[in-house]
Design a protein around this nucleic acid. Structure first.
Lengths: 128, 128
DNA sequence: CTGCATCCCAGTAGATACTG
DNA sequence: CAGTATCTACTGGGATGCAG
């Protein structure tokens, strides 16, 4: 999070910013949750149901992290039972562009990556 | 890497692709190395010098991963001492667009994120 | 319903030393 | 020069149980 950065063509400002951003969205769940919330406000267990493979703990941690970084707004309605809604902030919505770019690249080039992986693994299977 | 994906507005294809991509570039060093190689071919220890904080082991592992996924080409020249050059493949270069988009977003919104973090931490410091 | 606390395991980073 | 091997330490993340 606070590493040296010796890129030749760029000072450390952009580099640290990218590092910080990747350590936020580079984890296992953040992009998934953010993408989900692009569809509108959701309650806690609603998200859980939509992402069955996430554990309660990780959803809590992910939402806390996103809230801390100002990407998600958490609204508590103190009824009984309590109701907590999560929605993207404007900052959160502004991530849509870069995320779409990444998704488009990922979709377009995944076959190439998988082919490269298969070729690499085949090349190195002979050794074993 | 092979997780369930229950996004409402997208089938699992794009989602898995994004997951795969993030697990590639979401680590600590890959983006740094790729960005570095955008400036042209580099030798192993050349990269090490340019990224002083990376360990020899992690540089090896990072380059292997990128090579396996077809983003980086590894060229061995069997002289004494041996010479190994790394350069981006066409696939690697195609990452430039999304990476730039991410960097621009990161640079533009980092102040907002840092402010949000400070506010969040301040809000929760009172509790302690 | 929401979410915090605890325990526990597996994966992965780092340091160091050694090899072709 | 360009790695590999090994060992240790840290962290992410799942399971479970408890609380407001």
């Amino acid at each position: 999070m606070d590493m040296n950065c010796a890129l030749p063509d760029r000072d450390s400002g952009p580099c640290q910013a990218v590092e910080a951003t990747l350590s936020r969205i580079g984890d296992k769940w953040s992009v998934l949750v953010v993408t989900l919330l692009r569809g509108g406000s959701r309650r806690f267990n609603e998200i859980r149901r939509l992402v069955p493979s996430i554990s309660q703990r990780m959803l809590t941690l992910t939402l806390r992290g996103l809230e801390r970084d100002g990407l998600v707004l958490r609204t508590v309605t103190p009824t009984t039972p309590p109701r907590v809604d999560y929605e993207l902030t404007e900052l959160g919505h502004s991530l849509a562009g870069p995320l779409d770019a990444l998704r488009d690249w990922a979709v377009a080039h995944r076959p190439a990556m998988q082919a490269a992986q298969a070729a690499f693994d085949g090349r190195h299977a002979e050794a074993a």
